[in-house]
Each structure stands twice: as structure tokens, then as C-alpha cells.
Amino acid sequence: MEKDKITIGGDSDEIVLDVQDLVVHYVLEDETVEAVNGVSLWLKKGQTLGLVGETGAGKTSTALAILNLVQTPPGVIKSGSINVCGANVLEMKPAQLEKIRGKDVSMIFQDPMTALNPVMTVGEQIAESIRYHEKVSDKESLQKAGEMLELVGIPAVRAFEYPHQFSGGMKQRVVIAIALACNPKVLLADEPTSALDVTIQAQVLDLMRDLKEKLGTALVMITHDLGVVATVCDMVAVMYAGKIVEYGTIEDLFNTPMHPYTEGLFNSLPNIKDRKAELIPIRGLMPDPTKLPVGCAFEPRCRYAVEACKAPLEMRQVSDTHSLLCSRYEEPGFRIDMKRGERAHG
């Protein structure tokens, strides 16, 4: 995919995040977990990319690598490059990394209950990040912390309270305030709403969408929920066994999904508009990440698989914005039958 053509949702041509051929393995005593196997993605200022996949697809490992936070050992970033605002994160010294973490790129973790320090007031926790990156007095940083709380919809007076005094949704708002305190160019959000109730999830997602538009932050939204993707993202990357298997705009992915795995994900979801519709699960299980096949990793579960799928394969471009990893498309005229996709059209 040519980067200069992708401007959907972005408000400029500035590429703030550029990941190329990232490979992350976890080397254990007698086996190697191949978590991420050649992921390439990029984001322009203000764009939102949804990184979708099931447990073990390599979503979180990709995000941790972007912050150079993969724990070593056992984790090893085998190859690839990661540029955040033009600087290669993988070549940085620890001191340089500390400067960009929280300032240029920050992360929201899945579980707000464990992401906060229980013995520090929430105001202090927000101010800490501001003081670290900006030359401000304690008083100024605390005042800014209060402003950040207001921004995420919490009264500034609550800055003096401790995490246990907040509910789950409120804690996640505090975590968002910390992540955004230094106005980062890239925000990585790892399942930010999975631990929350549905009505609270709706509140937090709307908040994130508003803030993203207001601040022009590029957002990587890691999730297993295609509904969340449809709500906040401009672009989507579907991951399976450490690889991106389909990449495109929201319209590409939701209106004309092409990869058999993407089809499987859609067909596994109950359709709210048709309660009698049968669920069509994907048969079998995720492959063992220590013994990945050379060819397509989805081949053993795929209902379109043929012998040729066992050969190594490469990403193919199907339109300016849409690409996928599936060798069946070598055959002219090959299509998935995707019931739900057709319904979305009609």
C-alpha cells in the first residue's frame, strides 16, 4: 500500500507512526513463541487505526514493541523498524526512550484497576507525567492535571482523591487523562473499554473520539470487538497469528471484507437485526505460536483452503487502500461468499 495515498481520517500528510516488517519473538528454553511475524503499519496525524484480532494474535506485542517495552528476556525484537515522529524507537538509548514515552507516544492499558498507583492521588499521577516532560513548577503541573481531569469529564476537585475512590469507568478516564497529559502525537489504546460495562463503554468511546478530534492525536485502537472498531476507527488491520491478514479503510473491511478470517469473525457475531440468523463459527483453534506453518497460518481452519495455501505468501494490493494476505486471490474470480457482507450492501 502506498503511504501517500492513505489520507482517510487524517488531517495532514505527516506520518507520525511507521512500523516496518516488525518481528517479535519470545525465546523460551526449549521453544520460541513467534508472536509478531512481519507487521507493517503506519498512521498519519489524527488517524485512527483499529488493530483487531483474537487472543494471541500479537496485537499487544506489537503495541509494546512500538514503545520498546517488550520484556527482554524472553522477548526479542528480531527485526524491523519503528519510527515515531521520524525517530527510530528501536535504536534509542533508555534515556531517549524515557523522553518520548508519554510525550510523543503513550499507552492506555486494558485494565484501569491495575494501571493506577493506589497510594498516590490521581492528580499527582497526572502531574507526575507533566512534570517529567515539561519545565513547569509543581503548582503549574497540578493545575494542568486539574484541567486534564475536566477534559475527560471529571470535576477538578477530585484530583485529590485516590484511585479506590473512583469507579471503573472513572479510573479509565483518569488513565486517559494521564496518557493525554503531554499531548502525545500517537496514542496506543490496548482494549481500553473491555473491562467496562456497556453504557460506560459507550461514554468512554465517545470521549476518546471527541478528544482525538480535538487534539489531533493519532490513535491505535487494539481490540477484539469489531463494534468498537466501527465506532472509532478510520482504518482497520485484522491480525492473525502475528501477521496482518487484511488491511483497509472501515468501508473496505466492513462493506467488502475479502479475507476468509475476516469473514469468519463477522459470521461468528450474533446479528442484532436478525435474531434467527445462524452463527457460523470458525472451526478449530488458533495455531500453536511455537509451530507456525510456512504457508498461510489460517489454512487449517479455512473453508476455502486448497493445497497452494501451504506455500509462503505475500500481502497483495487489491485497491489503493485495501490489501490482504490470501493466495486464493491469485485465481481470477475468486470470492468469499460472505453472507453478512452482502446484507450490509443491500
Binding site: A202, V229, A230, T231, L269, A344
Partner: peptide, 20 residues
């Protein structure tokens, strides 16, 4: 609050104030 997995869905939802 149900997030429908369709492009362009999920805008203009009813927001509840506050929490339980």
C-alpha cells in the same frame, strides 16, 4: 449502547449520565 459492526454505524447514541 450496542456497538454494531458496520461502517458508519454507532453515531448519535443515547448517552447515560453518570454511573450505577
Amino acid at each position: 449502547a450496542i456497538l454494531i459492526p458496520e461502517a458508519g454505524a454507532n453515531r448519535g447514541r443515547i448517552q447515560l449520565r453518570g454511573e450505577l
